[in-house]
Simulated assay, not measured.
Amino acid sequence: MDRRQFLTAGAVSGLALVVAACTEADPSPPPTSTPDSPAPDLPPSGAGDPVVTGTVAEGLNVPWAIAFLRDGSALVTQRDDATIVRVTPDGAVRTVGDVSDAAPRGEGGLQGISIGPDEDAVFVYYTTARDNRLVRMEFDGARVSNPRPLITGLDTAFNHHGGAVVRAPDGYLYVAVGDAAQPDVAQDVNALNGKILRVDDGGRPAPDNPFGNEVWSTGHRNNEGLAFDAAGRLWASEFGQDRRDELNLIVRGGNYGWPEFEGESDDPGFISPVVTWPPGEASPAGLAIVGGHAYMAALRGRRLWRIPIDDASGESDVGDPRGLFTDTYGRLRAVAAAPDGSLWVSTSNTDGRGRPAPGDDRILRVAV
């Protein structure tokens, strides 16, 4: 397979693309299927096809990120009321804490979450009245408490917050920070916006970072999904502006081009994405990798993208992406690999840009 798979779609006006990419807007009609109906773009009996096996939980408030505990339950951030809930596999939902200084607005609020290796701490990314920040909170299994700021002063705006947080096999935290609608900052290696950061649990730069600070990679516009594959490589989903959304394979010190280019570039100083989509088919959010496939949630695209990746040999080739559950559940935001081998996927229909169905927002269980 060619490493760059460029997908095409029907014509969309330039204005509509700008609105969709920049604001996650969804001008399309609501899904016509019932929540548990078969996905229309899947064959009815194909072996190995992912299938939604049920609803884990419902009635949630913009569930933005999902992080699993060893017992199979998950901590889920709710963006717009800045609370963290614990969701068990059998559907019990219990609030374990809130973030008192969060100030949700626009696309910001309580976003990414990662659980410490001993499950005695959580790391969350959120918006305050004056900045975006990464904070460590204690977790005793029942409550989160005692927030301690690790990285503060990240520029904030109505949109382009980034927000994904993931723990790597090397033990460090990787944090996606959006450009806060200031494109030029993404090329400044001394600024933290428009970057992917790599830090320890105290928020300090990892010692072998490429620029001597927190920055791991540059040239990003708005990454909302980060995931590691079986080979230990980092992948990131990224909102484009008005032409191409992206899936990128992230390397140390890599420059991913924003705002100098969007999508593919022939400039050897920049790294091109491995897959692109028109914004109407994507507006990519959460990302998870299971069994040699990357699964990327799409907001405006209202589907789950399944992208074959070669995570055994370490090659950057990808197979043909395939859209799953298109228009069946509305906007999809979080996707996480559960301990039992399934995926948990959240809807995002109560975020002001979707059309909620009864029970929204919900978390779906997908067998892959």
Score class of each variant (00 low, 15 high):
residue 222 N to P: 06
residue 84 I to A: 05
residue 323 G to D: 08
residue 127 T to Y: 00
residue 357 A to W: 01
residue 42 L to M: 07
residue 166 V to L: 08
residue 331 R to L: 10
residue 228 F to G: 12
residue 142 A to Q: 12
residue 229 D to C: 05
residue 308 P to K: 12
residue 159 N to Y: 05
residue 307 I to C: 05
residue 271 I to P: 00
residue 49 D to R: 08
residue 172 Y to D: 13
residue 261 F to M: 07
residue 352 G to V: 08
residue 180 A to R: 11
residue 141 G to F: 03
residue 167 R to A: 09
residue 186 A to F: 03
residue 48 G to K: 07
residue 4 R to F: 14
residue 310 D to S: 13
residue 308 P to H: 01
residue 37 S to P: 04
residue 139 F to P: 09
residue 53 T to Q: 02
residue 191 A to T: 10
residue 255 N to M: 03
residue 22 C to A: 14
residue 286 G to F: 00
residue 21 A to T: 03
residue 14 G to I: 02
residue 6 F to G: 04
residue 195 K to T: 14
residue 94 R to N: 10
residue 283 S to A: 14
residue 98 D to E: 13
residue 85 V to Q: 08
residue 350 T to E: 05
residue 262 E to V: 06
residue 66 I to R: 08
residue 313 S to P: 06
residue 262 E to G: 08
residue 357 A to H: 11
residue 56 V to L: 10
residue 252 R to G: 11
residue 340 D to R: 14
residue 277 W to T: 06
residue 348 S to A: 15
residue 172 Y to P: 00
residue 248 N to A: 04
residue 104 P to A: 13
residue 172 Y to E: 07
residue 77 T to A: 01
residue 109 G to H: 00
residue 245 D to Y: 00
residue 74 A to V: 09
residue 1 M to H: 12
residue 62 V to A: 06
residue 225 G to R: 12
residue 38 P to H: 02
residue 42 L to K: 08
residue 28 S to F: 15
residue 34 T to K: 10
residue 177 V to C: 13
residue 125 Y to R: 04
residue 367 A to Q: 15
residue 237 S to N: 04
residue 278 P to R: 10
residue 239 F to W: 02
residue 187 Q to T: 00
residue 170 D to G: 02
residue 50 P to A: 01
residue 47 A to T: 11
residue 51 V to K: 15
residue 183 P to R: 04
residue 82 A to T: 11
residue 84 I to K: 01
residue 229 D to I: 02
residue 219 G to D: 07
residue 224 E to K: 03
residue 315 E to M: 01
residue 46 G to I: 08
residue 67 A to E: 12
residue 15 L to N: 10
residue 8 T to K: 13
residue 208 D to N: 13
residue 118 D to Y: 01
residue 57 A to V: 15
residue 282 A to R: 01
residue 129 A to S: 15
residue 201 D to R: 02
residue 116 G to T: 02
residue 368 V to K: 02
residue 123 F to I: 01
residue 185 V to R: 14
residue 47 A to P: 01
residue 15 L to T: 13
residue 46 G to A: 15
residue 7 L to Q: 14
residue 360 D to I: 00
residue 273 P to M: 11
residue 201 D to N: 05
residue 212 G to E: 04
residue 357 A to G: 14
residue 334 A to E: 14
residue 137 M to Q: 09
residue 5 Q to N: 04
residue 171 G to P: 07
